[in-house]
Amino acid sequence: MKTVIDDYIREEMFPHMWCPGCGNGIVLGAIIRAIDDLKWDRDKIVMISGIGCSSRITGYVDFCSMNTTHGRALPFATGIKMANLDLKVVVVMGDGDCSAIGGNHFIHAARRNIDLTAIIINNMIYGMTGGQYSPLTPTGRFGTTAPYGNIDQAFDLTSLAMAAGASYVARGTVYHVRQSISLMKKALDKKGFSVVEMISDCPISFGKMNKMRTAVEMLKWIKDIAVSKKAWENLSVEERKEKFVIGEFLDIDRPEYNERYNEIIKKAQKMGGNE
């Protein structure tokens, strides 16, 4: 039988390079299912990623795809989108990729509210380089470069995106796949900068350092730390530690960058002149 997935992947690249149980594969499946539901013309879909285990995702999909440099996926995507407004541009990044080396690009893409969808696979660690802490590693958790525990505070990417000017912001997890697919669909369909943070498991790098050596243990943990907005309200400050709200945080209409640039084109052409 040919499944939806089979239809969208570059089969010669499979089985993929990710470790057993790695959440990257679950997110890939969710993105494909969301895109398939939207019935987009796949010749007009572009998927861009940065560098990291998660960013290898672009090698597996049968779209126009680009595995760029570490942290830079969003500016590459910005150029692509501006050059061809017919393209649907989906950007997939790891937590380190998006929030450390690419943190500045992330807030600026949000600030411009350019029509891109950013999906961040947050496994709370640098997976590819073997388990160093990232800006999304929870305080107190361990990484190979935080052997005594991480003293940094983690970003809340969703709050960051909202403050910076995104149009759509949501958070899902690899445990809550069905819900995540619907969040992704809304994000993909949104005009403007849309963000879905996906809490994901990395049993090999995060799990190993944090006493969750299997994907099953990690998914149980993720199930445990993800709470609904309602449940969150009833938690004490102490109980909120290391918990994440999942669901939709923002869905508003704001002027999109290319729409505004089109106004500039009209204005400039009206003013004329050729110097």
């Binding site: 150029g79 692509i80 989108k81 501006m82 050059a83 400039a268």
Partner: peptide, 26 residues
């Protein structure tokens, strides 16, 4: 913009170079 082209001031030169490459690919 008078020619229907696009200009963008990016957040830094790393991003500018990336955007330029992206636009060329498109």
């Amino acid at each position: 913009p008078r020619l229907g082209g696009k200009f963008i001031q990016m957040e830094d030169e790393i991003a500018s170079m990336a955007a330029v490459i992206g636009a060329s690919i498109a």
